[in-house]
Protein backbone atom coordinates (compact mmCIF):
# COMPACT_ATOMS: atom_id res chain seq x y z
CA UNK A 1 0.00 0.00 0.00
CA UNK A 2 1.26 3.44 -0.88
CA UNK A 3 1.90 5.94 1.87
CA UNK A 4 0.84 9.39 0.70
CA UNK A 5 1.28 12.79 2.25
CA UNK A 6 -1.63 15.10 1.47
CA UNK A 7 -0.66 18.76 1.74
CA UNK A 8 -3.46 20.87 3.21
CA UNK A 9 -3.75 24.62 3.49
CA UNK A 10 -6.92 24.27 5.50
CA UNK A 11 -9.54 24.34 2.75
CA UNK A 12 -12.95 23.36 4.06
CA UNK A 13 -13.76 19.76 3.10
CA UNK A 14 -10.43 18.94 1.43
CA UNK A 15 -9.89 15.64 3.20
CA UNK A 16 -13.20 14.20 2.07
CA UNK A 17 -11.80 14.15 -1.48
CA UNK A 18 -8.80 12.00 -0.49
CA UNK A 19 -9.98 8.95 1.40
CA UNK A 20 -7.62 6.10 2.24
CA UNK A 21 -8.40 2.89 0.39
CA UNK A 22 -6.85 -0.40 -0.73
CA UNK A 23 -4.24 1.44 -2.83
CA UNK A 24 -3.13 4.24 -0.55
CA UNK A 25 -3.01 5.46 3.01
CA UNK A 26 -3.24 9.25 3.34
CA UNK A 27 -1.61 11.31 6.03
CA UNK A 28 -2.57 14.98 6.05
CA UNK A 29 0.09 17.63 6.56
CA UNK A 30 -1.30 21.03 7.51
CA UNK A 31 0.71 24.01 6.36
CA UNK A 32 1.92 26.26 9.15
CA UNK A 33 4.21 29.28 9.29
CA UNK A 34 7.16 26.92 9.81
CA UNK A 35 6.11 24.44 7.12
CA UNK A 36 8.90 21.93 6.65
CA UNK A 37 7.50 18.38 6.46
CA UNK A 38 9.56 15.21 6.57
CA UNK A 39 8.79 13.57 3.24
CA UNK A 40 11.00 10.51 3.70
CA UNK A 41 8.33 8.13 5.10
CA UNK A 42 6.13 8.60 2.05
CA UNK A 43 5.90 7.20 -1.46
CA UNK A 44 3.63 9.88 -2.85
CA UNK A 45 3.21 13.60 -2.32
CA UNK A 46 -0.25 14.96 -3.16
CA UNK A 47 -0.66 18.68 -3.78
CA UNK A 48 -4.38 19.06 -4.42
CA UNK A 49 -6.46 21.69 -6.13
CA UNK A 50 -6.43 24.98 -4.23
CA UNK A 51 -3.03 24.46 -2.64
CA UNK A 52 -0.53 26.90 -1.14
CA UNK A 53 2.29 27.37 -3.64
CA UNK A 54 4.10 29.86 -1.44
CA UNK A 55 4.58 27.07 1.07
CA UNK A 56 5.56 24.58 -1.63
CA UNK A 57 8.23 26.94 -2.92
CA UNK A 58 9.77 26.90 0.56
CA UNK A 59 10.33 23.15 0.29
CA UNK A 60 11.24 22.92 -3.40
CA UNK A 61 14.65 21.37 -2.68
CA UNK A 62 13.06 18.80 -0.40
CA UNK A 63 10.54 17.92 -3.11
CA UNK A 64 13.37 17.54 -5.61
CA UNK A 65 15.22 15.19 -3.25
CA UNK A 66 12.02 13.22 -2.68
CA UNK A 67 11.55 12.72 -6.41
CA UNK A 68 15.21 11.92 -6.98
CA UNK A 69 14.73 9.11 -4.48
CA UNK A 70 12.32 7.57 -7.01
CA UNK A 71 9.12 8.73 -5.35
CA UNK A 72 6.03 10.30 -6.89
CA UNK A 73 4.21 13.62 -6.96
CA UNK A 74 0.68 14.51 -7.97
CA UNK A 75 0.00 18.22 -8.38
CA UNK A 76 -3.44 19.00 -9.78
CA UNK A 77 -3.35 22.73 -9.25
CA UNK A 78 -1.99 25.93 -10.74
CA UNK A 79 1.62 25.84 -9.51
CA UNK A 80 2.38 29.50 -10.12
CA UNK A 81 5.65 29.39 -8.18
CA UNK A 82 8.67 27.52 -9.51
CA UNK A 83 8.75 24.50 -7.21
CA UNK A 84 7.94 21.64 -9.61
CA UNK A 85 11.16 20.35 -11.21
CA UNK A 86 11.29 20.91 -14.95
CA UNK A 87 7.72 22.10 -15.41
CA UNK A 88 5.80 25.33 -14.89
CA UNK A 89 2.08 26.07 -14.84
CA UNK A 90 1.15 29.17 -16.79
CA UNK A 91 -2.06 31.13 -16.24
CA UNK A 92 -3.67 32.26 -19.46
CA UNK A 93 -7.12 33.67 -20.15
CA UNK A 94 -6.63 34.52 -23.81
CA UNK A 95 -8.54 31.50 -25.15
CA UNK A 96 -12.32 31.21 -24.89
CA UNK A 97 -13.47 28.41 -22.60
CA UNK A 98 -16.25 27.76 -25.10
CA UNK A 99 -13.65 26.37 -27.49
CA UNK A 100 -11.75 24.15 -25.05
CA UNK A 101 -11.58 20.49 -26.07
CA UNK A 102 -9.05 17.94 -24.86
CA UNK A 103 -7.16 15.45 -27.01
CA UNK A 104 -5.03 12.48 -25.91
CA UNK A 105 -1.29 12.70 -26.46
CA UNK A 106 1.45 10.31 -25.35
CA UNK A 107 -0.11 7.90 -22.90
CA UNK A 108 2.35 5.05 -22.54
CA UNK A 109 0.73 3.76 -19.34
CA UNK A 110 -2.86 4.15 -20.46
CA UNK A 111 -3.64 6.71 -17.77
CA UNK A 112 -6.69 7.81 -19.74
CA UNK A 113 -8.29 4.37 -19.62
CA UNK A 114 -11.68 3.77 -18.12
CA UNK A 115 -13.54 7.01 -18.74
CA UNK A 116 -15.03 9.09 -21.51
CA UNK A 117 -12.98 12.17 -22.36
CA UNK A 118 -16.19 14.12 -22.76
CA UNK A 119 -16.48 14.03 -18.97
CA UNK A 120 -13.61 16.51 -18.96
CA UNK A 121 -14.75 18.34 -22.08
CA UNK A 122 -18.24 19.07 -20.78
CA UNK A 123 -20.00 19.55 -17.48
CA UNK A 124 -23.75 20.01 -17.90
CA UNK A 125 -23.00 21.10 -21.45
CA UNK A 126 -20.36 23.66 -20.45
CA UNK A 127 -16.83 23.35 -21.78
CA UNK A 128 -13.61 24.69 -20.32
CA UNK A 129 -14.66 23.88 -16.77
CA UNK A 130 -11.83 21.55 -15.82
CA UNK A 131 -8.33 22.88 -16.46
CA UNK A 132 -7.06 26.47 -16.41
CA UNK A 133 -4.08 27.78 -18.33
CA UNK A 134 -1.54 25.19 -19.37
CA UNK A 135 1.74 23.57 -18.39
CA UNK A 136 5.05 24.57 -19.91
CA UNK A 137 6.18 20.95 -19.81
CA UNK A 138 9.69 19.59 -19.58
CA UNK A 139 10.80 18.92 -23.17
CA UNK A 140 10.94 15.12 -22.89
CA UNK A 141 7.95 14.70 -20.56
CA UNK A 142 4.81 12.98 -21.83
CA UNK A 143 1.95 15.30 -22.69
CA UNK A 144 -0.87 12.95 -21.79
CA UNK A 145 -3.64 15.39 -22.60
CA UNK A 146 -3.54 18.62 -24.59
CA UNK A 147 -6.14 21.29 -25.20
CA UNK A 148 -7.61 22.73 -28.39
CA UNK A 149 -4.42 24.72 -28.98
CA UNK A 150 -2.11 21.73 -28.33
CA UNK A 151 -1.11 23.10 -24.94
CA UNK A 152 -0.29 20.51 -22.26
CA UNK A 153 -2.97 20.15 -19.59
CA UNK A 154 -1.96 16.74 -18.19
CA UNK A 155 1.73 15.87 -18.04
CA UNK A 156 3.51 12.72 -16.89
CA UNK A 157 7.13 13.55 -16.23
CA UNK A 158 9.57 10.69 -15.67
CA UNK A 159 12.59 12.53 -17.04
CA UNK A 160 13.15 15.65 -14.96
CA UNK A 161 13.88 13.60 -11.84
CA UNK A 162 14.35 9.94 -10.96
CA UNK A 163 10.74 9.79 -9.82
CA UNK A 164 7.33 10.34 -11.39
CA UNK A 165 5.19 13.42 -11.56
CA UNK A 166 1.57 13.62 -12.67
CA UNK A 167 0.69 17.26 -13.23
CA UNK A 168 -2.53 18.89 -14.36
CA UNK A 169 -3.11 22.49 -15.38
CA UNK A 170 -5.23 22.99 -12.29
CA UNK A 171 -7.65 20.28 -13.36
CA UNK A 172 -8.86 18.84 -10.05
CA UNK A 173 -8.35 15.14 -9.27
CA UNK A 174 -9.77 13.22 -6.35
CA UNK A 175 -9.65 9.86 -4.61
CA UNK A 176 -13.14 9.22 -3.37
CA UNK A 177 -15.88 6.82 -4.36
CA UNK A 178 -19.45 7.55 -3.56
CA UNK A 179 -21.50 4.42 -2.91
CA UNK A 180 -23.60 3.42 -5.89
CA UNK A 181 -22.09 5.98 -8.24
CA UNK A 182 -19.75 5.45 -11.14
CA UNK A 183 -16.29 6.79 -10.53
CA UNK A 184 -15.76 10.10 -12.29
CA UNK A 185 -12.94 10.88 -14.69
CA UNK A 186 -11.26 12.88 -11.92
CA UNK A 187 -11.00 9.75 -9.78
CA UNK A 188 -10.17 7.37 -12.61
CA UNK A 189 -7.14 9.32 -13.88
CA UNK A 190 -5.84 9.66 -10.36
CA UNK A 191 -6.26 5.97 -9.53
CA UNK A 192 -4.70 4.93 -12.83
CA UNK A 193 -1.64 6.89 -11.74
CA UNK A 194 -1.71 5.33 -8.28
CA UNK A 195 -1.74 1.88 -9.88
CA UNK A 196 1.25 2.84 -12.00
CA UNK A 197 3.13 4.09 -8.95
CA UNK A 198 2.16 0.95 -7.02
CA UNK A 199 3.63 -1.30 -9.69
CA UNK A 200 7.16 -2.37 -8.83
CA UNK A 201 7.67 -3.75 -12.35
CA UNK A 202 7.47 -0.38 -14.08
CA UNK A 203 10.20 1.85 -12.67
CA UNK A 204 10.35 5.47 -13.71
CA UNK A 205 12.88 5.77 -16.52
CA UNK A 206 14.30 9.13 -15.54
Amino acid sequence: MLQALLISNGLVGLEKYYVSNELVQYTTCFITKDFNPDLTPYDLLVVPNGSDHVAMLKIKDKVRDFLDAGKALVCCDGFFTAWVPGNQWVMDNSRPTLEVRYAPGTDRYDLLRGFDLDELNFSHGMSGWWACGYIAAAPAADVVLADTWQRPVVVLDEVSTAGRMLLTASGPLADVTYAGRTESALVTIYRNFLQLVSSSTVPAHG
Binding site: L57, N93, A136
Partner: peptide, 13 residues
Protein backbone atom coordinates in the same frame (compact mmCIF):
# COMPACT_ATOMS: atom_id res chain seq x y z
CA UNK B 1 -5.41 40.39 -18.23
CA UNK B 2 -2.56 38.25 -16.99
CA UNK B 3 1.05 39.34 -16.56
CA UNK B 4 2.99 36.23 -17.56
CA UNK B 5 6.15 37.61 -15.96
CA UNK B 6 4.53 37.22 -12.54
CA UNK B 7 4.43 33.44 -12.90
CA UNK B 8 7.16 30.87 -12.36
CA UNK B 9 10.61 32.13 -11.42
CA UNK B 10 9.27 35.70 -11.42
CA UNK B 11 6.45 34.99 -8.97
CA UNK B 12 5.93 37.86 -6.55
CA UNK B 13 6.08 35.89 -3.32
Amino acid sequence: TIDAAAYGAGALV
